[in-house]
Design a protein around this nucleic acid. Sequence first.
DNA 1: CTGTTAGCGCCTTCAG
DNA 2: CTGAAGGCGCTAACAG
Lengths: 336, 336
Amino acid sequence: MPPTIADVAERAGVGVGTVSRVLNESPLVSDHTRARVLTVIEEMDYYPSDLARGLSTGTAGVLGAVVQRMTTPSAMQRLRGILDVASDAGFDVILRNVNNVDDYRDQVRGLLRPDRCAGGLLVSFKPSAEDIKRLGTNPVPVVTVDGQLPGVSGLFIDDERGGQMACEHLIELGHQRIAFVGDRDDPIGFGPSRKRLAGFRKAMDDAGYAVPEQYVKIGAHERLVAMQHTNELLGLEQPPTAVVAAADFHAMVVIDAARLRSVAIPDDLSVIGFDDLDMAGYLDLSTVRQPLYESGARGARLLLDVMGARGLPPRHVEMALELVARGSTAPPPIKR
Amino acid sequence: MPPTIADVAERAGVGVGTVSRVLNESPLVSDHTRARVLTVIEEMDYYPSDLARGLSTGTAGVLGAVVQRMTTPSAMQRLRGILDVASDAGFDVILRNVNNVDDYRDQVRGLLRPDRCAGGLLVSFKPSAEDIKRLGTNPVPVVTVDGQLPGVSGLFIDDERGGQMACEHLIELGHQRIAFVGDRDDPIGFGPSRKRLAGFRKAMDDAGYAVPEQYVKIGAHERLVAMQHTNELLGLEQPPTAVVAAADFHAMVVIDAARLRSVAIPDDLSVIGFDDLDMAGYLDLSTVRQPLYESGARGARLLLDVMGARGLPPRHVEMALELVARGSTAPPPIKR
DNA sequence: CTGTTAGCGCCTTCAG
DNA sequence: CTGAAGGCGCTAACAG
């Protein structure tokens, strides 16, 4: 049995209240007493029980994170940011992976309770209006990372603007026949793909270029599907000279598919992604960078703020996007 | 304020003991009473406090996982296995990312305590003999996933055998000049690279082939380093016809570096990795597969077992390795 | 400044 | 089968 606060108190010849005070860094303890208690704590290798403390204070010393599709590289980066900040602040974090919205409600309600965690992060949660209604309010402070929820502070990016940036980059390089490859909406509410597509369309529209419907490829978030789409694109009578991918994931597949057909990147085909995952750098892929690690870190800080001062009006912080031009984009091939 | 067990008891017209009993599925409750209590619980949307339950039972209803370099793809897969099994068993898991052994001790001692979690998983922890001594014993049941600790149940693979398998595959294809590219030991104790290298050497030795020292490239776990090493290898007067990479990570870099030099894979150079990450499939990379998701899942189950029956003699389970021959390995080019 | 005491919400005897 | 009561370890409010 590990020593309890009472053991420490007894050995130090003080009351438990005093020990508790030094534990919580209360100024109401004489330096002398504090030193003694600290010594005893050290001697006995005592550490306070989180459980008991939690019961007493009414809140667990842990943060909860509900992450959509946790194993994707982007979610991982966000998670890393969250963990770093949380652990610096002395919080552990409980993790919950989620794959669809039906889970979501249960997960959120099951985890984001005062007896389980002091605060919660909703990562990449894009609920529909109806989802929101079903979610209700949370008994613990919550923030969103990569997502917006009315009444809840959070971090988000402008996906539409990002899609537009990607496309404009291509247009500036001289491309006119540009295709889009993306996936269907996320299982949880509206995904970013659709918004990025909207941005793509806007850029094309602004430039006065048409977007034939065969140029827009939307399918499941699977390698084979994107592969197939790329093949269809490249097999067209009038193939595109560039592709805007909804994410680096798709961009990679497009590049692979092109390679297999001996279509040179960027000479024959320019490709731009979205996210700037590690692999984008490796593959020399042009992309629209969104802050991943940073969004996790800032999200965690935001949560800490909210926990510190409840009742603040919710803040929605937009994270900046950045175009990263690398070797996968270049001017279109000379017409002939 | 959420309802407490007392509220439920009152409303149901029974004692708290009875409510507690139905909560814990004790058979000592009449069906009639049970039904009533259940109804009230439903009505009041009551859920028991984990904190209080933990204080009372002396153990938290959470598992702790200390993961080395959590964001690597392989660690992620393991984590996924752990989370899936844990959540099926009704456990949440607290995550701790660790990057060096100095952290490790603190992390382990700070997290693996009865007041914080009911059991712990040490993922990819490869301690030196000294580390082990410094770690001491844990007050909660612990298992290792991808690692061995004396006196602690766990899952492991035979890295040496794996290195040997990879090399033998190449030898069977007819290669004689085979190089090895790997990284330095993990920050935490001995890494797998060295063992895989040993297996590689053994296979070469058994086949009677020499391994010139320039054929063995060990450096930091960084893309640029592996890139540089590959370039050195390919620039040799007598370059290797095949490369055994310590991990898929290195194999990918080797392939990229080769491509940049217009060295065809597998026509001019065969490459085999280790792990079988998702990307290995995408890249058509031959590799030695180690069970990743599975090791996490089985590790979690093992932990559950150990928690259920403490005092069992520790079990060390070896996970099977499997050679996956894909398109990155082929017979060596014809001599000329 | 410090000791004492009452809970926090639940589980677990112990009588009934 | 079931109600009542003690205690898990800690914090916070209250007298000194």
